[in-house]
């Protein structure tokens, strides 16, 4: 069964733009990205959209559909009623290059600021020995496809552009948590998570978890455990005392 759907799509370069109205054919089983491609093929050949795998694994087609960050390739048209007007805009938190294509370089900049995996100097490649239980907690975070929808929805930078220099967003705080939980990582992640990457800005409203297409429990399994580790390190006098008495390294 096909029908004509009403779409409002953001058109424009940079911040300047407007929502343009389209009426476009929708067929059974299609997703929003299919409709965007049909618009390109039939009505708006210069409509810019970033996409790649069409399977929810490359994280390229992040956009906002009816105001919610979604992957265009994973949003079925059957989730909308036929008389509904569907609004498609680029991600709000990042600058727009053209139409639905964002400049996501903020994320690459933040990625570079996280020091890579740092094993002990006396352990050579090939000598790592880890049990499954020691690594499976952080394996959840490896599912991330870097669609950056978590950073897009996080109100710390979505609603406050001025926080961008001081806040790395859920994606990279999760990366820091992944490394901090790694049995062989020896870099100091806790101090930098709080002081340089802005973990304290997170007020755990869990929007990052809500939008994650890989269903990673970003807040419960990465951000809150990392906050607790920071409390150990910076705010808990009993832990500090215990570390002194038992000569534990933090």
């Amino acid at each position: 069964m096909s029908y004509k759907a009403k779409f409002k799509v953001w058109r424009g370069e940079g911040g300047e733009g407007r929502l343009e109205d389209f009426t476009v054919e929708v067929n059974e089983g299609e997703v929003v990205l299919d409709i965007i491609h049909r618009l390109q093929a039939t009505q708006a050949p210069d409509l810019a959209v970033r996409w790649n795998c069409k399977a929810g694994k490359c994280g390229s087609c992040s956009m906002e559909i009816n105001g919610k960050p979604r992957l265009g390739c994973m949003t079925r048209m059957s989730t909308f009623s036929e008389d509904e007007t569907i609004t498609v805009t680029p991600m709000r938190t990042f600058p727009v290059i053209k139409d639905l294509v964002n400049d996501v370089s903020y994320n690459y900049q933040k990625a570079r600021e996280v020091p890579s995996f740092t094993p002990p100097a006396d352990v050579r490649p090939g000598e790592f020995r880890m049990k499954q239980v020691d690594v499976e907690r952080s394996q959840e975070f490896r599912k991330c496809i870097e669609c950056f929808m978590c950073n897009n929805i996080c109100h710390v930078i979505r609603d406050h552009e001025e926080n961008k220099p001081n806040f790395s967003g859920p994606r990279f705080l999760m990366r820091i948590a992944e490394l901090d939980m790694h049995p062989y990582d020896v870099a100091d992640r806790q101090e930098t998570a709080q002081e340089e990457h802005g973990l304290g800005y997170c007020n755990i409203t869990k929007c990052c978890t809500e939008v994650c297409p890989e269903h990673i429990k970003i807040t419960d399994n990465a951000l809150i455990p990392m906050k607790e580790r920071v409390v150990d390190r910076k705010y808990d006098p009993l832990v500090w005392l215990g570390n002194k008495i038992f000569k534990r390294s933090s």
Binding site: E13, G15, N66, G67, T87, P90, R92, P95, I97, E161
Partner: peptide, 23 residues
């Protein structure tokens, strides 16, 4: 060529409403 460094092109989409959510 498609992303010149002009200030206007380094801005977010200037959506004027608080949210576009319809739920």
């Amino acid at each position: 060529q498609t992303t010149p460094e002009a200030p206007a092109r380094r801005q977010r989409a200037q959506v004027k409403v608080r949210t576009l959510r319809t739920d």
